[in-house]
Design a protein around this nucleic acid. Sequence first.
DNA 1: TTGAAAGCGCTAACAC
DNA 2: GTGTTAGCGCTTTCAA
Lengths: 341, 341
Amino acid sequence: MNLKQLSEHLKLSQTTVSRALNGYPEVSEATRQRVMKAARDLHYSPNLRAKGLATGRAQAIGHVLPISTQHEMVNPIFGDFISGAGQAYAGAGYEIVISLVGDDDEEAAYRNIRLRGSVDGIIVHGPRMKDPRIPLLTELGLPFVVHGRASQIDTPYSWLDTNNLRAFTRATEFLLDLGHRRIGLINGLEFMDFAFRRREGYVTALTARGLAPDPALMRSGEMTEVYGFRSAQEMLAGPDAPTAFLASSMIAALGVRRAIHAAGLEMGRDVSVITHDDDLGYLGNGQDVPLFTATRSSVRAAGTRAAEMLLQLIREPGHPPLTQMMEAELIIGSSTGPARR
Amino acid sequence: MNLKQLSEHLKLSQTTVSRALNGYPEVSEATRQRVMKAARDLHYSPNLRAKGLATGRAQAIGHVLPISTQHEMVNPIFGDFISGAGQAYAGAGYEIVISLVGDDDEEAAYRNIRLRGSVDGIIVHGPRMKDPRIPLLTELGLPFVVHGRASQIDTPYSWLDTNNLRAFTRATEFLLDLGHRRIGLINGLEFMDFAFRRREGYVTALTARGLAPDPALMRSGEMTEVYGFRSAQEMLAGPDAPTAFLASSMIAALGVRRAIHAAGLEMGRDVSVITHDDDLGYLGNGQDVPLFTATRSSVRAAGTRAAEMLLQLIREPGHPPLTQMMEAELIIGSSTGPARR
DNA sequence: TTGAAAGCGCTAACAC
DNA sequence: GTGTTAGCGCTTTCAA
């Protein structure tokens, strides 16, 4: 069933039917009702491609996932984020288009997204500290919102981010307050902006207490379990081993726990661990588990919010950039208890 | 830059340019080269919407995620699966469209996907045992491939699935061989097909050894850490506590480990745990961690394969259904060691 | 308040 | 081998 068929069925012109369906004021209320009813009864659903061609709007939002040989993992929160975003799009009649972009031909890929015209705006995922996509997209004039930030870019752009610096500052302070002086940092890849900011938070807290950050206690890598295990194992084997760890992901923290166990130590007695867990939001309520967390529902909320921001930018071209900071919750469970030092 | 402009620039008709670009044989090689070069130089990229309108093909594949109030989590492997699928699509020039479908208006949603014409085929995620989407899509004539299966549906359809039954049969047998007789099953929601089959595997292995499955040792729920913790805690507190656990997800297994620890027991000495981990494929190599695993790369491979299957079905309408079974790897690490009973 | 007609960017008969 | 022309399904002037 297409517009033409529907209009013939109703003995009206396509124009009138189209107007009735799209809420134009000039159709009489009677016709509108009649059209609406027929559309429903006959299961009419407009062809988005045709509509897009005619209007120049795609009625779709692109979510771009950078796929790199250096960091192969797709962030597991992606599903939750997109499900939140989907909620915002659904109301506005937008579809979601996923684009996977390798780091080899990044510029061409984004230019093509623009030229192909299949999206009206995009959400940029996984920003690096000096992400070239931001000036590029600005130049291309394609509305976009970054999920995260790029610390080394000064020109204004729209973003929504978790306060990673503050989260790690607080976590570090918490451990310092418990008396820890040697705290291992098991961080993500630090060319990724979120990881860079987390380290900044860690370093900030240490230096504020007059402690010099020790490079031997800082690791940066792709956050797998094995990475967490090896990093913690090396630190624990070294001279002046850490009495606490700050892990940038639940998975890496799993490895850290295993290393602690393998060293014959006990979590919460000999060694404390705090995890930042926005990469596994569905952990539950974190009961008894010490962590900073962006829970599933907050990741979803972030997705919805980012989508709303983007839709606003699309609706109002020329609108100045929108930004939003989300604070991470700090949940400290019993097993963090003061470590024996 | 569109076709018209490009053709004017080249002083050729749109037709010829279109043919040259799309590999039709009737253009002379010289013209084709000239056209290709100009297209590259001028950053020409065809408008997919217009192309789709003209051809009737959308050049896009839909991935449909069921969003339910009963199981809110988006499977974290989704990102990896789609990144694998994306690779297959990229080569064929397809885009990825994500649709989130609630369980309230499922039928209407799928009908609309069909009518809107924005995808040429879909991948169905998260199948339930008797999933109504399968007969519906068959009726609609929209090519589809199910990621997983629906045990209670007999009519043939295309699917790609992990051998969950076999994985859990083997895991259970492994524990039985170690001398365990009381094995707790921490399973996913059993109206989901994967969870149903996993229980079948567990039950099969027990009964084959003449053991009756004990309902007190079987749990079904959404796989959070808290769920694993509570389930294991209850079982351990009961009379005749289990000496081993089989957990359907890494996250739930985390909770199980915590419950074991809280009960004053030790993993690998008092209690063994095996995890099926296709929901967290990026765990690493599982070294020292006992688990069945669909690794990140295998999840990705599954995505690629499912996509290839779908593309074939789209290319050859009327092709009989394709099916593919993937075997889970069994990785047993040292900490599984025979339990003291 | 309604309709006729042009056009969005592209493909595909059908000529030549 | 290349060009002309008529759509694909919809929106949007312009006219009535």
